[in-house]
Amino acid sequence: MIKLSHVTKRYPNGHEALHDVSFDIAAGEMVFLAGHSGAGKSTLFKLITRIEKPTSGQILVDNQNLSRLRDNKIPALRRDIGVIFQDHKLLMDRSVFDNVALPLIVIGMPHDEIQKRVRAALGKVGLSGKEKQLPITLSGGEQQRVGIARAVINRPSILLADEPTGNLDDALSDEIIDIFADFNRVGVTVMIATHDFRQIERLGNRTIHLAHGQLMNLAQPVTHQPNPEAES
């Protein structure tokens, strides 16, 4: 489903965010991407969604070589990848319904189908009945659930979550991660970037460790020292 082969990403300022990274994620697998702030996790997600291109190496998503993907094919790629952000990226002056419906409105889906899909997505994340509320009236955990509902509204085969529990307490973090596990159980490929090692230990899924842009040898001790350089 996702295959990286010797991927390096170097930005114009000379900062090397990723260096010679190779790994595979099988269809239907749920994987944690672990590492300190600045380890390269967000850059990796930008590469998988073709927001950025690698400096060298190859990325395949569902057998598509992203470096060779035509610009007119990128929207279809992104519709099949749901992305959840730590800071939610919600429109605070729009209702929960409007936030979740936005990806469907953009592609011109009929109103009746949008209604069905939004209600189904909100039901899956435990927010039924909150369609008319503004996100600003919701708790942090509920806002994150709105972000998840929006990410799955197109019924993607891949979910990428970038530090989805970073601002939540342990109980809410467990609830959010369990929602991802529920989607994974019905066949969605899930990749969660996190530095929350409690969640990694709790679920026991395969973990890919990054440190300063490189894959860690798991025989080495994991250190949680932050990178002095902010991640691009």
Rank of each mutant, 00 (worst) to 15 (best):
S5I: 10
R155V: 04
L66K: 07
D182H: 06
G57S: 09
R198T: 08
V31D: 00
I176Y: 08
K130G: 00
G204M: 14
E175V: 12
D98R: 12
N217I: 08
P156N: 10
P226G: 07
K124C: 01
D178W: 06
T8K: 11
P75V: 07
G147Q: 04
I81E: 02
S42Y: 07
Q86K: 13
E175C: 06
D169P: 02
R155M: 01
K130I: 04
T43M: 10
G204F: 13
E113S: 12
G38K: 09
F45Y: 12
L138Y: 04
K124S: 05
G40E: 05
H6M: 06
R155Q: 08
T55G: 06
V7W: 09
P164V: 04
N99F: 11
E131M: 09
K116F: 08
P226L: 14
Q143A: 01
G38A: 07
P103K: 15
T137W: 03
H212K: 05
I74H: 13
V125P: 00
R202I: 10
G40P: 04
Q225F: 10
D174N: 14
G123C: 07
K9Q: 09
M30D: 03
L218W: 01
A76F: 14
A219G: 13
G141I: 09
N72C: 11
M191H: 04
S67Q: 15
L127T: 06
